[in-house]
Design a protein around this nucleic acid. Structure first.
Lengths: 243, 243
DNA sequence: GCTTGATGCGAACACTGTACGCATGTCAGA
DNA sequence: TCTGACATGCGTACAGTGTTCGCATCAAGC
């Protein structure tokens, strides 16, 4: 090999790259850019190629830091569980308020990241991720200080999380459809009106329920409905604390 | 064009097909074959091509009866809601038993069709499908005769369905993973042991809960946990009926 | 017979996840 | 300073995806 490997007309710009000036590619950067992409464009827009491009990298470079797309999604799901806020276990008398706050926090995560509900079914609840385990431990502490024994606290936690996930799944799926339609919620509902009327034709009770909420603010209704469920669950749990 | 379009050596077997001897392709046949395919091989195995092949048809023929894959999935989801059994509204005093039966029925549908949970998030709850609306009407009737007013019955129904969907989502995702692993549940748990111990290292309460159920039958535990949640929800609802 | 409308399907397109092998950059030790 | 080992990035390629389009075939009605 010749000693001089430079091209005939050397130039700083011709050299590949002086140094690795960026934080390079890392699992963390990949996961958080994936979340940004998902928040901005939804689940269908997430491909290894599109994500790679956003990171200024080739599609296949990601595979150095992530085993495959499924693993990436597990990481992404655990990451957003990290946004959950569970109050410290404190005054046992205020356990209802604390649990309610945790539940609202989980709901708001899902509404902030509505694509999440379309991967919960593949990932389960990502049972072993560090963030989910951390939050579970804190929620469990809340219930234990409220007075539940070890095994029952676990069941109570499952009940609470299942309710929040189930409720927000239907909310988030609806909101994602709304976003895809590009219309305002009122326009969409107006547009769906004939189909809805036809579907409820032979169902007087559903019609009655629906006309009872006619004209109210849909967002507030969702909020109230969520709160109603939490309140009933807490009522049901409370009967176990003082027989 | 020449009058004789037959090939030089005509034959019955050379002719495309004598008659349309099969029930042909129809939306119903497509949907039920899709469910068979999903039950047998899971969500990843469902492609328009694989489904077409199973029906003895080309992939693109399906598009004559179904707008696209998303619509097919909506139809499939509504179809399995049709398997739900909701008791007739009868004795108001037995509303807890009736609601419990409906909830168990919904759970068993999801466990029979575990792939469903990975599409709930895309489809919402398929709000306008004929089967779901029919079952909702029946569940609503149950709650109305139990004594709930129109608007509250609606919220109670949302609470119940959200809980069942949320709980079974995590169950079904776990069971799907179990099925993919090809191992028995005991083998899988043994195999996951080291990872689980590492994940729970700094979480004493989770460890305590987990060791409390060590050695018990996992299937029965899931059943008990589900029942616990339903009971608490019904307790919570009951406080609203007799103040 | 001829026309019309519904149905099936082969070919093609743009895209997907990912395996493989090569090039490059970093660093430890001689 | 040279050398080997290793980690990282990426171009290429492959099998498979959902879906569009235009052409062939059928049944029914005039």
């Amino acid at each position: 090999m010749p000693a001089d490997q430079q091209p005939p007309v050397p130039s700083v710009w011709a050299r590949p790259r002086a140094k690795r000036e960026q934080p390079a590619l890392s699992r963390d950067r990949i996961v958080s850019e994936a979340i940004r992409l998902l928040d901005a464009e939804g689940i269908d827009a997430l491909s290894m190629r599109s994500l790679g491009t956003r990171l200024g990298a080739g599609a296949t470079s990601l595979y150095r830091h992530v085993a495959n797309k499924d693993e990436l999604i597990e990481l992404v799901v655990d990451q957003i569980y990290g946004e959950m806020r569970v109050p410290d276990a404190g005054d046992p008398a205020r356990w209802r308020a604390a649990v309610t706050e945790a539940a609202r926090s989980l709901r708001s995560i899902v509404l902030r990241h509505p694509w999440a509900v379309s991967v919960f079914g593949q990932v389960g609840l990502a049972h072993l991720g560090p963030n989910l385990t951390r939050q579970s431990e804190r929620l469990l502490a809340l219930l234990r200080t409220a007075g539940f024994a070890a095994d029952e606290a676990d069941q109570a936690m499952n009940l609470l999380i299942a309710y929040v996930i189930g409720m927000t799944t239907s909310e988030a799926a609806y909101l994602a459809m709304l976003a895809r339609s590009g219309q305002s919620e009122q326009d969409l509902l107006e547009h769906l009106r004939p189909a809805a009327e036809h579907a409820l034709r032979d169902h007087p009770l559903l019609r009655e329920s629906q006309s009872a909420v006619q004209g109210k603010d849909p967002g507030q209704l969702r909020e109230e409905s969520f709160t109603y469920g939490i309140e009933r669950i807490l009522d049901g749990l409370e009967t176990r604390l003082r027989p």
